[in-house]
Amino acid sequence: MEKNYMKLEFLSKSSNESFARVVVAAFASQLDPTLEELSDIKTAVSEAVTNAIIHGYEYREGIVIVESRIIDDEIIVIVEDMGMGIADVEKAREPFYTSKPDLERSGMGFTVMETFMDGLEIESIRGQGTKVKMKKKFNSLKDKE
């Protein structure tokens, strides 16, 4: 079984959104993903990190933690904040639902993560933070065998 692990911590600044998605994409590249798979993972990471900055910390300064694990041909990405937590996780997962309509948020963040990845779990505790766990299986390695 092939295993690898990495952890990244950064300030909740919007300029770090691109930093985080590029790092995870670079880590995932050892699985030899297709361009589409790489684009999917970048998009999903961007959604989760943006949520941590806007909703978790509400633009205040905090630390966002991104962990990623590779097990065989699957990648697991965990995005965690120690912010305010989600009041109603089921509601937040609904397409087009946003707690911040005045900011022109589309309400599609979790829907995009669900569609672009193969699994999405959300753990959130009010006042303590949110942990989003996503996984994706890459098919490109198998194609070569």
Binding site: T43, E104, M108
Partner: peptide, 13 residues
């Protein structure tokens, strides 16, 4: 080269 749901919010607005 990249667009996430923030771009969707921008277009919807």
């Amino acid at each position: 080269t990249f667009m996430d749901s923030s771009g969707i919010g921008l277009v919807m607005g």
